Amino acid sequence: AEIMKKTDFDKVASEYTKIGTISTTGEMSPLDAREDLIKKADEKGADVVVLTSGQTENKIHGTADIYKKK
């Protein structure tokens, strides 16, 4: 799966169907969080990951919607 910015995804959204939401939390780098989200998306058969939230304090927390091409 590839990560797309919401603004970029909005241009092609009609080509995809939302298949779920994924999240990651833990003591990790932003890059590790990104890789974890991609891994989870791949496991669910998603083609595209669109980040919906991200937070960093002591731990990273990120959520994303996942989509499959129609």
Rank of each mutant, 00 (worst) to 15 (best):
V48K: 03
S14F: 10
S29W: 10
I38T: 03
I3C: 06
G20D: 03
E57G: 13
G20Q: 00
H61R: 12
G26K: 11
Q55A: 12
A46E: 02
D32N: 08
V49L: 13
T17K: 09
I38F: 03
T7E: 15
T7D: 13
V49E: 00
T56H: 12
S29I: 05
T7Y: 09
E43H: 07
I38H: 03
L31D: 14
K70V: 08
K5E: 15
T52E: 08
S23R: 11
D10F: 06
I60T: 11
E43F: 07
Y16E: 00
G54I: 13
D47F: 03
T52W: 13
K70T: 08
D8P: 03
G26D: 10
E27W: 14
I3G: 00
D10E: 12
Q55M: 13
D42H: 13
I60L: 11
G62A: 15
E43A: 13
A64I: 04
P30M: 12
I66D: 00
E27F: 15
G62Y: 15
M4D: 01
A1E: 00
E57W: 09
P30V: 11
A1D: 01
D65H: 05
T17S: 09
E35R: 15
D36S: 09
E43N: 06
M4R: 02
F9W: 04
V49M: 09
G45C: 11
D32F: 08
H61S: 11
L51M: 12
G20A: 05
G54E: 15
G45H: 07
A46N: 00
E15T: 07
M28F: 08
P30R: 08
L51N: 00
K68P: 01
D8R: 04
K40R: 09
S29N: 08
K68R: 10
V48F: 02
K6N: 05
E15W: 14
G26A: 10
D32C: 13
D36V: 09
I3S: 02
R34P: 03
K18G: 03
A13L: 04
K40L: 09
S53D: 12
A1M: 06
D32S: 08
E35G: 06
V48C: 05
I22K: 01
I3H: 02
K69E: 03
E35D: 08
K40A: 06
N58P: 09
V50W: 02
T24M: 09
D10G: 04
I60S: 11
V49W: 00
A46Y: 02
E43D: 07
M4F: 05
E35F: 11
Y67W: 03
T25R: 09
S14H: 15
K59P: 13
I19C: 06
N58W: 10
A41E: 01
K40D: 02
I38V: 08
Q55P: 11
V49T: 00
I3R: 02
E2I: 15
S53I: 14
K18Y: 15
I66Q: 01
D65G: 03
L51R: 02
K68D: 01
E27M: 14
S23E: 13
L37E: 01
L51C: 12
A33S: 07
D10C: 13
D10R: 06
A64H: 09
T63V: 08
V49C: 04
T7P: 08
L31I: 10
G26V: 13
D42M: 15
S53R: 07
S29C: 10
T25L: 09
M28S: 06
D10I: 09
V50D: 00
D47E: 05
I22M: 03
K70Y: 05
A33C: 10
A33W: 14
T24W: 14
K6H: 07
G45R: 05
T24N: 05
K5Q: 11
V12K: 04
Y67T: 01
P30A: 13
V48Y: 02
T21Q: 09
L37W: 04
E57D: 11
K69R: 10
L51G: 01
V50I: 08
T25I: 10
K59M: 14
A1L: 07
E57I: 09
H61V: 15
S23I: 09
I19G: 01
K39A: 08
I66H: 00
M4T: 02
V50A: 00
K70Q: 05
D47V: 06
N58H: 12
K59H: 12
K59T: 13
E2F: 13
L31Q: 14
T52F: 08
I19E: 00
E2M: 15
G20T: 03
I38D: 01
E43C: 11
A46F: 01
A1I: 13
T52D: 09
E2G: 06
I3Y: 07
T17G: 03
E27Y: 14
I66P: 02
D47I: 04
Y16D: 00
L51Q: 03
T7K: 12
T17C: 15
A1N: 01
D10N: 07
A1V: 13
T25K: 09
I19K: 01
I60C: 12
K39R: 14
A46D: 03
E35H: 13
I3A: 03
A13H: 06
Y16L: 01
K68N: 03
K40I: 09
D8E: 10
A1T: 05
T7F: 09
R34T: 08
R34A: 09
D65W: 05
V12E: 03
K5S: 15
V12M: 05
Y67V: 01
K69I: 04
S14R: 09
G45K: 06
K6S: 09
F9I: 01
L37S: 02
P30K: 07
K59C: 14
H61M: 13
I19W: 04
D42L: 13
D42K: 13
E43W: 06
F9R: 00
E15A: 10
S14G: 11
K44N: 07
T56E: 12
V48H: 00
A41W: 00
A13C: 12
M28H: 07
M4S: 02
S14V: 08
K59L: 14
G45Y: 05
I19H: 01
K18F: 15
G20W: 03
A1Q: 02
T52M: 11
K39F: 06
R34W: 13
